[in-house]
Write a protein that binds this DNA or RNA. Structure first.
Lengths: 212, 212
DNA sequence: GAGTGTGAATGTATTCACAGCA
DNA sequence: TGCTGTGAATACATTCACACTC
């Protein structure tokens, strides 16, 4: 049975981190929430609670079986299937992500890139073919793409997002440093790298520092 | 006078976002917290409260003067001075950040890059000279570098961080997808891009989606 | 009248601490 | 005995709503 409380905002991020460490272990090993806490830096009680929203996977006195835990977390996060991705904006950051995601085998598969630069269009970069943005609706339909990653300059961000939305994508990860708007039925997540840097001096001065 | 409550965790991130929009406006314009809310997507009351931790910058019935507000936020975030940065790991992601930070004039100046790859050492990339990591303590001292950005592969992350720490750096932004440990007097911030992607299917399935 | 600044009310997340199971 | 799973306690963050100022 699974805990009926509301799942907190970053349970998923924490479990994703746990999963990364579990992947480096053997399936038949055992691990306690306390050991996982050591590895990840997340308090053990938090880990147990995060897991409890999805079921009871542990054995009192013993801990968790790595293989089973991996499987359960993957399922909880929706990583037990294949997700097709479009990358919009194939600049330096885009290529870094491309590179990252095409290397390791995972639930994610970048199926197409889009860029306005003529020289890139038609080429393959890290094995991914680059298209002209006007082809987006067609390509996204054909390739059954579920989510978009936006790494275009900020001036182009809203336009890129709009194109993804009319193409039928249901989730967008936006790396451009502006707020963009989407219809309510589209899931949008913003990652603002500029702020991450800009914010450091504040925490340096103050003694408010998070995220150890 | 300034509100004596404790400053919440992501006040700084929110103010950094506000600042980005303010920078595109004329200094003598006026803006209300409600207008700023429209631009940023942050509720107006939250903006007013965030500002209130640092002083009273507005005029009732009128709003804020853009120029003054920019100045005050910059000061609150510690952006009213120059920060020297070392980039450790000059791969694709590193170069994306390099490119980003060297382009726009800002409070941040990347003064040196470090990488183990022989071909890169001695070269300049986006105007920044690349050094062998063993030179780190010397270079960081000479160039008065305050903070380090780590974009090395995960196996090398702890080593890179340790080198930065013994070189005397007081703040580190870690982009590698593992937890690294630092002494308590060093400020560490982790940005985990892999999790950002991995977590999307969860929010897609559930109807828990943040960060509009 | 319009919009700030802020206590008080509400909502969310984390941590504690322990009963209960293997 | 050792560790899970989870209510209850605490800490933290956001939002409301309004007295007050220009």
């Amino acid at each position: 049975m699974s805990n009926k409380e509301k799942v907190p905002e970053n349970t998923a991020v924490r479990l994703s981190l746990c999963l990364r460490y579990l992947r480096e272990m053997k399936d038949d090993e055992n691990i306690s929430s306390e050991q996982l806490a050591q590895l990840t830096g997340i308090p053990s009680a938090r880990i147990r609670k995060d897991l409890s929203y999805f079921g009871q996977f542990g054995t009192p006195g013993k801990g968790y079986t790595v293989g089973k835990l991996k499987e359960q977390i993957s399922k909880a996060l929706g990583l037990d299937r294949q997700w097709n991705i479009a990358l919009v904006g194939v600049g330096k950051l885009g290529r870094a992500l491309l590179n990252y995601l095409t290397f390791k085998k995972s639930s994610f598969h970048i199926r197409a890139g889009f860029d306005v630069e003529r020289e890139k269009i038609g080429k393959k970069i890290s094995g991914v073919k680059i298209y002209d943005p006007y082809q987006m609706p067609k390509i996204i339909r054909e390739k059954k793409i579920h989510m978009g990653i936006v790494t275009v300059p900020q001036e182009a961000a809203q336009e890129a997002v709009d194109l993804l939305v009319i193409s039928g994508v249901k989730a967008i990860l936006n790396f451009s440093p502006v707020r963009v708007v989407v219809p309510r039925y589209v899931k949008l997540r913003n990652v603002d790298l500029a702020s991450q840097i800009e914010v450091i001096p504040f925490y340096l001065a103050k003694d408010n520092f998070p995220d150890r």
